[in-house]
């Protein structure tokens, strides 16, 4: 990147409203997807790379996406939307069913809150879902910080000025 191409925020807090929907992300999951994600997150447990272990020991349909890799997929989905100035604060997710090779996973999200906290940090709350066909495999509630104006940058917040565990943002 040249010095002339210093990035500017592509999405500000004021651009976002409750009820907004994020662009969907669809991914066809293969065994490689599962194994790549498990090894990238240093998860060596066999249910994430050994078909026979997953089916015969765990009683599952196949190897399946591991927890840290699902978190990484949620991060990618959210920051695709926010741009690089979006700073993840918190994610809580629940895996209802597993995601297996052969599944087409589709990420979608709705904005449920837009607010500025006591430190001036802008927060967006999201309800995110990972769907496979008609079933919701994983649900996620997420908080991500966005700049409140073009000169603001959540990544430059430290200590008391960064409170990802604060109360949920109100619209």
């Amino acid at each position: 990147m040249s010095a002339a191409a210093v990035p500017v925020p592509s999405r500000l807090l004021g651009d976002v409203s409750v009820g907004d929907e994020l662009p969907e992300l669809a991914v066809d999951v293969t065994a490689t997807t599962v194994v790549l994600g498990a090894l990238a997150s240093r998860d060596w447990r066999p249910q994430h790379h050994d078909h026979h272990f997953a089916t015969e020991r765990n009683g599952l349909a196949d190897i399946f996406l591991n927890t840290p890799n699902q978190a990484a997929w949620f991060e990618r989905f959210i920051t695709d939307w926010t741009g690089p100035f979006g700073r993840p604060g918190r994610m809580t997710f629940r895996m209802r069913t597993s995601v297996f090779p052969g599944d087409r996973m589709v990420f979608g999200a709705t904005v449920t809150g837009v607010a500025t906290d006591a430190t001036g940090c802008g927060w967006v709350d999201l309800d995110v879902a990972l769907r496979v066909g008609d079933r919701v495999a994983t649900t996620c509630t997420a908080r991500v910080a966005l700049p409140v104006d073009p000169s603001d940058n959540p990544w430059r917040r430290h200590g008391d000025r960064w409170d990802p565990g604060g109360a949920a943002a109100a619209s």
Binding site: M1, A3, A72, R76, F85, W155
Partner: peptide, 28 residues
């Protein structure tokens, strides 16, 4: 593994400008 093209993880100049230097994905 996740097709994450966020430039703060790939481009040091962007990381310097946005994050004050290189960072790794928070979910790692």
């Amino acid at each position: 593994a996740t097709g994450n093209g966020n430039p703060i993880f790939w481009d040091d100049a962007v990381a310097d400008a946005v994050c004050g230097g290189p960072v790794v994905p928070p979910t790692t």
